[in-house]
């Protein structure tokens, strides 16, 4: 591994192949604004109003997911929150894991966890059965 280096002053800016980092930066802001409504609304309903967490049980979930409105709300919240969090952790790993192997391992774990959790959550929302025994 070579030592970290800085470009010489006034050296030409490297042309990147795509705008991934710019798009990721923009995604954090756009998804963040949407998540403010989705997540704060979710926390208000689930934790604060009308007894909060103490009234949540299987029947409560079944009642909510009988409405497509809350199914779409939860699906959108799941995807946006996971992608927003995944990109946030990617940034943090890139900042603090200086060894190439550590960085790649941590990011690999992060991406696997993200894909698995998004897949699990999506599956649960789409296949929820209120009459499961």
């Amino acid at each position: 591994m070579s030592a970290p280096s800085l470009d010489a002053p006034r050296s030409k800016r490297q042309i990147t192949k795509n705008n991934f980092e710019l798009n990721a930066w923009l995604f954090m802001r756009v998804s963040g604004v949407v998540l403010i409504i989705l997540v704060l609304g979710h926390l208000l309903i689930m934790n604060i109003l009308d007894g909060g967490v103490h009234r949540i049980n299987f029947a409560f979930v079944a009642g909510r997911w009988s409405s497509p409105f809350w199914q779409i709300w939860d699906l959108l919240m799941l995807w946006l929150a996971m992608l927003h969090g995944c990109n946030g952790l990617r940034t943090i790993i890139n900042d603090y894991a200086s060894k190439h192997a550590t960085r790649m391992t941590l990011k690999g774990l992060l991406y696997v966890a993200t894909v698995l959790v998004i897949a699990l959550g999506t599956l649960v929302i789409f296949t929820f059965d209120p009459n499961i025994s």
Binding site: G88, L89, V124, F128, I132
Partner: peptide
């Protein structure tokens, strides 16, 4: 983010029983 990972898994228990 770490709570979210746990929370999706605990909610997935609605698919168990």
């Amino acid at each position: 983010f770490f709570f979210l990972l746990v929370h999706v898994v605990d909610t997935a228990l609605v698919r168990v029983s």
